[in-house]
């Protein structure tokens, strides 16, 4: 390692020192600005998305009550446009919930396996494979859902078409598993080894240690892992756009086609004219999504902070 050159040089003249201080403070200012930029970006995202949706207040063609309680999404109707997103909210929640039903046991099971039952090269290899799972882009997941998973679902169930709730839940589960595994494994790894040693010394075997000692000790981290997975599933766009079937009805069975909030924006934004009610409503859906994920992430963050304080 090299020492800073200024330290092995004779004292500088006053002017040079002044110049150095100026350099130091300006670079520090720059670093601080960049650090603060993420707050700025979050505020800007909220501002710009909200700004386009704002004129809806006082717009006679639109009512907030209808927005949240109607299942009729007919933005291009000739007679009367209706903008009800209830079916899409139900769609988003059902696909998120169902995918978590797959992803949480699998993800936490894999996290336990990686952290407690497996060592050395096997562990490294499995971790890399799961990381690669995270690298597959969502448009490719959509493609896989449409071409591979969908036909399988049609074959194995009585689904009418391959693009439905079940297909997209499987995709979302596979997409949100990597974050659950990696955060879950980190939180299990963060439990001190002395806990494990104490438990084993008392005669508990490995599973009893995991179940009775590690799970309670790491529960905040595991919960945060699940919440991050939920956040990922709510916000996913391309895969659900291609594999949900795009039907604005409340699903009644596992293999009904659905539609999500994200997919609605993605598919209709290209065709609306700027400033129309339809355009503003799409931005309002954006605000709604922003609020939903913000809430989930905020809770996840508070939960993680909980561990740091108690642990």
């Amino acid at each position: 390692m090299r020492l800073p050159e200024s330290d092995i040089q004779p004292p500088r003249s006053a002017r040079k020192r002044w110049a150095m201080d100026l350099g130091e403070s300006s670079i520090e200012m720059l670093i601080r600005l960049c650090g603060w930029s993420s707050i700025l970006f979050v505020l800007m995202i909220f501002f710009f998305v909200f700004r386009e949706a704002f004129p809806l207040i006082g717009n006679s063609e639109f009512s907030f009550k209808e927005f949240f309680t109607s299942i009729n999404w007919r933005p291009t109707s000739e007679i009367r446009e209706t903008y009800g997103v209830l079916a899409m909210i139900v769609g988003t929640l059902s696909v998120t919930g169902l995918s978590m039903l797959f992803a949480v046991p699998l993800g936490l099971g894999a996290a336990v396996f990686l952290s407690e039952f497996c060592t050395g090269h096997v562990k490294e290899t499995l971790k890399i494979v799961i990381e690669l799972l995270a690298a597959i882009p969502s448009v490719v997941w959509g493609f896989i859902g449409y071409m591979v998973v969908g036909p399988l679902v049609v074959e194995w169930t009585d689904a009418a078409i391959g693009v439905n709730l079940l297909t997209s839940s499987i995709l979302l589960a596979l997409m949100s598993v990597p974050v659950i595994v990696s955060v879950g494994e980190d939180s299990l790894k963060a439990v001190p080894d002395s806990f494990r040693e104490a438990s084993v010394a008392l005669g508990a075997n490995r599973w009893e240690t995991i179940y009775k000692v590690l799970f309670p000790a790491a529960k905040n981290g595991l919960l945060a892992a699940v919440l991050l997975g939920v956040g990922r599933a709510i916000g996913e766009t391309m895969a659900v756009l291609m594999a949900t079937g795009h039907s604005t009805r409340i699903p009644h069975s596992l293999v009904d086609p659905i539609r999500t909030l994200t997919a609605t924006i993605a598919s209709e934004m290209g065709e609306v004219s700027r400033g129309s009610t339809h355009y503003q409503v799409l931005f309002l859906i954006g605000v709604l999504l922003f609020a939903m994920t913000f809430l989930v992430n905020l809770i996840a963050d508070l939960v993680v902070r909980g561990i740091r304080k108690n642990g």
Partner: peptide
């Protein structure tokens, strides 16, 4: 600041698209 970073990571990509458009 770190909460903002976490949330920025959690904002759905389609909302980023709306933001970029606006």
């Amino acid at each position: 600041v770190s909460l903002a970073v976490v949330n920025l990571a959690g904002v759905p990509s389609i909302v980023h698209a709306l933001f970029g458009f606006g």
